[in-house]
Design a protein around this nucleic acid. Sequence first.
DNA 1: CTGAAAGCGCTAACAA
DNA 2: TTGTTAGCGCTTTCAG
Lengths: 337, 337
Amino acid sequence: MSQLTIIDLAAKLGLSKSTVSRAFRNSSDINPETKARILAMAEELGFSPNTHASNLRGSKSQTIAIIIPEFGNKFFSLAIKGIELVTRSKGYHTLIYVTDHQVQNEATIVRSLSNGRVDGVIMSASGEGHEHNHIKQLRSKNIPIVFFDRNYDDINTVYVTGNDEEASFKATEHLIENGCKRIAYLVINKNISIGKVRMDGYAKALAKHGLPFDDHLVLDTVNEAEENCKDIRQLLRESRPDGVVASVERLAISTMRVAREEGLKIPDDIKLIGFSCLDITDLVQPSLSVVKQPAFEMGKIAATYLFESLAKPLNLKEQETTILESTLIYQDSSKKS
Amino acid sequence: MSQLTIIDLAAKLGLSKSTVSRAFRNSSDINPETKARILAMAEELGFSPNTHASNLRGSKSQTIAIIIPEFGNKFFSLAIKGIELVTRSKGYHTLIYVTDHQVQNEATIVRSLSNGRVDGVIMSASGEGHEHNHIKQLRSKNIPIVFFDRNYDDINTVYVTGNDEEASFKATEHLIENGCKRIAYLVINKNISIGKVRMDGYAKALAKHGLPFDDHLVLDTVNEAEENCKDIRQLLRESRPDGVVASVERLAISTMRVAREEGLKIPDDIKLIGFSCLDITDLVQPSLSVVKQPAFEMGKIAATYLFESLAKPLNLKEQETTILESTLIYQDSSKKS
DNA sequence: CTGAAAGCGCTAACAA
DNA sequence: TTGTTAGCGCTTTCAG
């Protein structure tokens, strides 16, 4: 008796399967006593209605998907945590997918979702590119999508993100105010969403303070520690920046390591500030100045949007961006000596 | 035309739905040309077969679930990353659930999976207790379960974990060798799985070196930073340990913070070693000695086990424990002064 | 309030 | 190689 069905239950109770079915939908006309009897029996036998059958019948899945480029940093952990919290509180299920920053993977994943598997998608985009057919197809199936942190700017989306340009501007300005003249900007991909926006903030701060924007001080590197350390080392040696704005956590960490190896003292020889959601920036040496995004909040809000649009189909094709304030935490790594 | 079906496709192509269906199963007898024609049309229309219908028909879901107690530390992030990698490579989907360390939540979640939603489960147990009916019920449905890191020791399970007792023994011994006489053990719950095992290692090291096991030096605290800092502060003040073994990452971090606040120098006044998968222990001040579990590997191996048992139903009710070596990294926080 | 029956979209015998 | 057909387990009109 591996798989019970409502028919088995009905038989045991001398009822019809429709009555049993009703007991599991909160709704409908059913005698409370009958319902109680059914649920008691179900409990005893450890029965619950087959998901696929109800999903097929009702054409909904009670499931959403999260698609993210990577799993490596605290930001995404916190965002997922926020999303999962909301999803679970709604009685929904959460699928998780990692693209490893490959748009190709993203497309494959998205395509595997368009056949009823999920009711909605929350994602952080994995590339630039202009081949967003997979997104469009999802939409054509009326599956709502909410983006967070990284989006495709050639597509109108509901998008929840940080005030990245402003935060980046302030971070850069902070370095300038602390005496930096040659500030480097480190990024994984300066053409995508956040990489670009954060660079804009950086550039504007330079401009405001009459500092030149120097291409040699912009390092567009890869998302892999060993490789980006090599790039950073080269940057430090050849371009001799006296300040660094790291657009993602990993690059801030790598910069600390490389500076140490190169015998450069932070903040005396070079000052550092980076985007990061790490909660132990006060314990590193020197304590690290950061732009801290409200990652957990961001996840919760993105999920809340999605559920709103699931409840009463909004027009999720409209561009609608929600911007959350990041916190700037200035610590020793960027202090004037 | 929101939802296409194989019947629509069949009609457009002048074929029958079974032929179309065959085109989507890798198998079966079908003319390659016909297949190509079908797939081309499907591609064009963005069609793929309805998941619920095939799952219902085939009574399998191509989906597994991960259930973990929390999302807060690097260990679980890495483990999930490992699991997701394997799952995706198998073309499976990954559901993720967080229990917040509540067995009650775990039971609810597990129960929601027993109706076909998943083909298998990978979990890290959320409690002690002896009410594991939810686990038994899952088994009675022939859904294989693999545990990692934390299991229920009154239930026979396939279990992938670190060599925690040995690692904890070594970590404790290391503190002793560096001169500690009053070593505290910090734990979230000394009665569960890893909390217990790691304490055993601690106790054995004390015994081997003729140090007394003192209850006042064992701090059983909670999984919340503010609260456990309070407890640690009290411990440091009242019991005056000269060494600390932290059984989880969060407690090691909290200890660093509290020691700093209390004006205690690490390692001069108090030495510290903790279980942690953080990759920046070399950057904190002082650099933190850690027991580093192979979390990513653990996730991959747990997933691999699950897929093996999915492929050819093993007897997953047998106790079978796989133990992975942790790495002990001795840094400044535990150095002899 | 409960039962009968149709059918959600697909797969897999079996038949052609 | 392709088509026909009978369900997978459930929900939901529609009758009673």
